[in-house]
């Protein structure tokens, strides 16, 4: 029964590690709530609208402000040369209204 014991131990250790990681994630999120609140107030007072992930084009830096709705402007599905362009979808929101 040695193999079963080893295997069970392996699974238990892995499951425990995962549980520990999950607990740590929850507690980290909890611990960082004040920091998130500060970031939120930063967004509020600076009147920010977008995350600063992609800085190569207007519609990647400010997807929410880009001219999705005007004719021909920065339409994200147009042929373009920014890799991030391929991953920003055309907005369905404005069309739907």
């Amino acid at each position: 029964m040695l193999k079963t014991k080893l295997f069970a131990a392996f699974i238990v250790i892995e499951a425990a590690a995962l549980a520990a990681l999950y607990v740590s994630s929850v507690s980290t999120v909890h611990l960082k709530e004040p920091e998130m609140a500060l970031k939120g107030s930063l967004v509020r007072v600076m009147k920010l609208t977008d995350v600063a992930f992609w800085t190569e084009a207007r519609y990647t830096r400010h997807p929410s402000q880009a001219d999705f709705f005007t004719a021909f402007q920065d339409f994200p599905m147009s042929v373009d040369h920014f890799p991030a362009g391929s991953i920003v979808p055309p907005s369905q929101i404005h069309g739907a209204q």
Binding site: M36, G40, V43, K47, L48, V51, T70, A71, Q73
Partner: peptide
């Protein structure tokens, strides 16, 4: 993780942002 954080933060964005358009451009 990115999505959750982004959406949480952008919840503090302004209710409405008004852009001006002229001849189909911002």
């Amino acid at each position: 993780a990115y999505k959750t954080e982004t959406l949480k933060l952008l919840d503090s964005s302004p209710e409405i942002i008004l852009q001006n358009m002229s001849a189909g451009r911002h």
